[in-house]
Simulated scan of single mutants.
Amino acid sequence: MVRSAWAGRDWGMRSIHVSRVVAASAEEVYAVASDPDRLPAWASGLASADVVREGDLLHVASPMGKVTVRFVSRNDLGVLDHDVTLPDGTVVTNPMRVVAHPDGAEVLFTVRQLAMSDAELERDAGVVAADLERLAALVERRA
């Protein structure tokens, strides 16, 4: 019998992977999702007002207060990972991808528990799911 060193460990942090298939190409979805000026139109969990740019930093009013966002450089791989610096200085890294899918593209976002309760994690995942729904609607209207 092989026993995994991972079995039974309580790592104290869960992740929830939220995804949404969009009826458009991965390139179209990436173009909209990576445009900072469009964040308020779909990412209500992050940006509730216009984005102020300062180099590669984005300053936005969010439900969490004023935050600073830094996305990875534009790329051909569909990677939209971004760090969010919260008002208290905590930096949260958010993995996000746009990948090809047989029905168009799929957007994947990982929500990490960090210091949240299970209920807060579930609420955050719900906010992300709603944001991805808005992104899909925005892109599909353009297509």
Rank of each mutant, 00 (worst) to 15 (best):
22 V>I: 15
41 A>M: 09
33 A>D: 06
42 W>A: 02
28 E>D: 13
69 V>G: 14
65 G>D: 15
6 W>S: 07
34 S>F: 13
9 R>V: 11
45 G>N: 00
28 E>A: 15
30 Y>M: 13
45 G>W: 02
17 H>L: 15
23 A>V: 10
40 P>G: 07
55 G>Q: 06
37 D>H: 12
46 L>S: 07
20 R>F: 06
60 V>K: 05
22 V>S: 01
20 R>K: 14
26 A>L: 14
32 V>T: 15
16 I>M: 13
60 V>S: 05
29 V>Q: 12
70 R>T: 14
48 S>M: 08
69 V>F: 12
58 L>A: 10
56 D>C: 00
45 G>K: 00
50 D>W: 08
63 P>E: 05
41 A>D: 15
43 A>F: 09
38 R>E: 11
62 S>P: 05
57 L>V: 11
53 R>N: 03
3 R>V: 13
39 L>T: 05
17 H>K: 06
62 S>L: 10
50 D>E: 14
39 L>K: 03
62 S>Q: 04
52 V>D: 05
47 A>R: 02
20 R>T: 08
14 R>D: 12
12 G>F: 03
12 G>R: 09
55 G>H: 01
50 D>S: 14
3 R>K: 14
70 R>C: 11
32 V>I: 15
28 E>C: 14
42 W>R: 00
51 V>Q: 06
58 L>Y: 09
70 R>A: 12
59 H>M: 05
7 A>V: 11
49 A>I: 10
44 S>L: 02
48 S>Q: 09
19 S>D: 05
55 G>N: 02
32 V>G: 14
64 M>W: 10
38 R>K: 03
38 R>H: 02
16 I>Y: 04
11 W>Y: 13
32 V>N: 10
44 S>K: 04
43 A>H: 07
63 P>W: 13
47 A>Y: 01
35 D>I: 12
18 V>N: 03
51 V>K: 08
43 A>T: 00
35 D>T: 14
29 V>W: 15
45 G>S: 07
12 G>A: 06
48 S>I: 12
11 W>G: 04
39 L>V: 01
21 V>D: 03
8 G>D: 12
46 L>H: 03
69 V>L: 09
13 M>R: 00
13 M>N: 04
33 A>F: 07
12 G>M: 04
29 V>K: 08
61 A>I: 10
69 V>I: 15
39 L>N: 08
47 A>G: 00
65 G>Q: 09
24 A>F: 15
29 V>H: 11
70 R>D: 05
7 A>N: 08
8 G>C: 01
